[in-house]
Design a protein around this nucleic acid. Structure first.
Length: 313
DNA sequence: GCCCAGGCACCGA
DNA sequence: TCGGTGCATGGG
């Protein structure tokens, strides 16, 4: 099978499963590495032998899928474990995975730039095939941006877990419970007092509810021209939301709308990574960062993802 | 007991 | 347009 350039070339339906060929470069182990970075993650589970189980919602109905790597065929097998397994739904599940794992991205073009960059070149060799693991759902991406403003990543994961397990839908399979992210319409009906016991600050509770109300009302969605019509306009649209500042907007544009130039430059993780890679005594100054990232123009999102990855090297 | 961790809104100048 | 402050919890 030739390398797929679009998802239509990549899918082969096969009974109750679908085979999704992936373009190259793509590293399944690197993807798994990202997906297993927290033990508190509730929106998917990675098994000891490297399969991924995730509860999707396809056309408002649950679908529990299992992803397995088929390295000799350069692809992923997506199996329906529970829920309605109609082939059209499996096709949509494959589309979700295609988006989730960033299989549309032109990683080769990023590599051509990064190969000439002293900071990035070792990273792309060490983590060859790492793509930006995304958050396909806009509401989930914005919520995670807000929750991720938390003081530590581990506390952010605790908050997400409580949020999902309190307001999300779930399904039990072979004695284990799987969760999907809360429906914005459910969150839209809450008040801040409902979220305070989960240890959200009053501000963050109100931010989440505010975003949920816009998404539920239809005034905020992934397909809208304000978000699709260019990076600058998308930043303006998102930062108009209460609780979404420059960092959060760029984070969501990187991981959900997949603008390659999205750059959460205020990110503490980026600063730590740069400090480590350049052996600095203190976190880099704005001037140092500017000099460093000038050659990355247009590829900042990929550079950021590789910098984050370098933190656990 | 105290400080600090990260990002955002708000306040006062 | 700023610089400073409060917010949340938990680890050192």
């Amino acid at each position: 099978m030739p390398l797929p350039s679009s998802i239509d070339d990549a899918i082969v339906l096969d009974g109750d499963s679908v085979f999704l060929a992936h373009p190259m470069p793509f590293s399944y182990p690197e993807t798994l590495g990202y997906l297993t970075r927290s033990n508190e993650e509730v929106l998917h589970r990675v098994t000891d032998d490297g399969r991924i189980l995730k509860l999707l919602r396809i056309k408002d109905l649950p679908l529990l899928v299992e992803l397995a790597h088929e390295p000799d065929r350069d692809g992923l097998r997506i199996r329906c474990l529970s829920g309605s397994c109609a082939s059209e739904r499996l096709r949509e599940a494959a589309g979700y995975v295609w988006d989730w794992f960033g299989l549309d991205a032109d990683v080769e073009a990023f590599y051509r730039m990064a190969a000439r960059d002293p900071v990035l070149s070792p990273l792309i060799l060490r983590h060859s095939g790492l793509r930006i693991v995304g958050v396909p759902d806009l509401f989930e991406a914005l919520c995670w941006s807000i929750i991720g403003q938390q003081i530590t990543l581990s506390f952010a994961y605790q908050l997400k877990k409580r949020f999902v397990q309190t307001y999300g839908d779930s399904l039990e399979y072979e004695g284990e419970r799987f969760w999907s992210f809360p429906d914005p319409a459910v969150i839209a009906r809450l008040s801040a007092d409902d979220l305070r016991p989960l240890q959200f600050s009053r501000n963050k509770a109100n931010f989440l509810i505010g975003v949920a109300r816009e998404v539920a009302a239809g005034t905020l969605n992934k397909a809208q021209p304000e978000l699709r019509g260019g990076f600058d306009a998308a930043v303006v649209r998102l930062t108009a939301l209460h609780g979404i500042g420059p960092w959060s907007a760029n984070y969501a544009l990187m991981r959900c709308l997949r603008y390659p130039e999205a750059f959460p430059i205020q990110d503490a993780g980026i600063h730590q990574a740069v400090r480590k890679l350049l052996n600095l005594d203190a976190k880099p100054t704005l001037a140092q960062l500017r000099e460093l990232y000038a050659p990355w123009a247009g590829w900042e999102a990929f550079a950021t993802f590789y910098l984050w990855r370098s933190l656990s090297d």
